[in-house]
């Protein structure tokens, strides 16, 4: 907890990063008074008898940065799918704050509640420019008619410019997203997440295909986001996890195997067994 406090303090000082989190109004019903912002309880998902998630229980605190690791097939991506409404669980409950039942909402409604997601495989709109990609992601009224009439305000243009700065794509702003390199697409997607400015960020393997320097920058960025936002990161890169993680959750065969800080988890005999085999 001490590290968390320290990071928050650091972020308050860091003015350049501060800009990325302007105050925006979310659903006033979002009630995080008990601490956690996300409650996953007794979630089970099965595909043709195979249990991708098996009675999973997971809580994410408001403002927390949580890393989730686990071997292939542990259910990490399925868990993200459940939270964002892509997959409906066979059993269990998912609550955003105290009151918002995510299982009653569809994908866009969940996104509108303030949950953003970066996919494992970077999916940007390849036929459109970087600028347009960011504009599409921007937090705004996303109903049809307002979108038809929407014109970018100066404020919004500035905001896009800031994010372009952060993700280092200002020069490519008018080029088609499909022409970007893999790492640049990863950045663009992170940028889109920033434009969405969600309350909870779900980030699936953000540093795959990035150089060491870029990885560092990503770590820095995610760290700075925690506090005002809650961040859940799924990652294989242990170095990266070590560099950002405060709390680590290990998933195995669809349920939580261990939870704690990096050292605790690494010394847990169950985790060692799963990762190194019998």
């Amino acid at each position: 907890m001490k590290t968390l406090e320290k990071m928050r303090a650091a972020m308050r000082r860091e003015r350049s990063l501060r800009r990325m989190a302007p105050d925006i109004v979310y659903d006033p019903d979002l009630d995080t008074s008990h601490g956690p912002i996300l409650y996953l309880e007794n979630i089970t998902v099965s595909f043709d008898g195979f249990k991708a998630l098996n009675d999973l229980n997971l809580y994410i605190d408001d403002g927390e940065l949580r890393c989730i690791i686990g071997p292939n097939g542990a259910g990490k991506t399925t868990m993200m799918d459940v939270i964002t409404g892509k997959t409906r669980p066979d059993a269990g409950t998912v609550f955003f704050g105290q009151t918002i039942d995510l299982l009653r909402l569809n994908e866009p409604e969940i996104a509108a509640e303030g949950i953003g997601r970066k996919f494992q495989k970077p999916t940007v709109f390849e036929q459109q420019t970087v600028h347009e990609n960011l504009e599409l992601a921007m937090h705004a009224d996303k109903r049809v008619w307002p979108t038809l009439r929407a014109r970018l305000t100066g404020e919004q243009r500035d905001r896009i410019g800031e994010v372009l700065d952060i993700i280092g794509l200002t020069a490519q702003c008018q080029s088609r997203a499909g022409l970007l390199s893999h790492g640049q697409k990863q950045w663009l997607e992170i940028g889109m997440l920033l434009m969405q400015n969600p309350r909870l960020l779900l980030v699936d393997e953000p540093v795959a295909g990035m150089t060491g320097h870029e990885t560092e920058r990503t770590a820095e960025l995610l760290n700075s986001l925690a506090g005002q936002h809650s961040v859940v990161v799924v990652e294989h890169d242990m170095e990266f996890v070590r560099s950002i993680a405060r709390t680590v959750t290990v998933l195995h065969e669809g349920s939580v195997l261990a939870e704690g800080d990096m050292n605790e988890v690494q010394n847990d005999p169950k985790v060692i067994e799963v990762y190194l085999g019998e």
Partner: peptide, 9 residues
């Protein structure tokens, strides 16, 4: 008779 599983998703 749907095909289930991650591939089908």
């Amino acid at each position: 008779f749907p095909q289930k599983g991650r591939a089908a998703e």
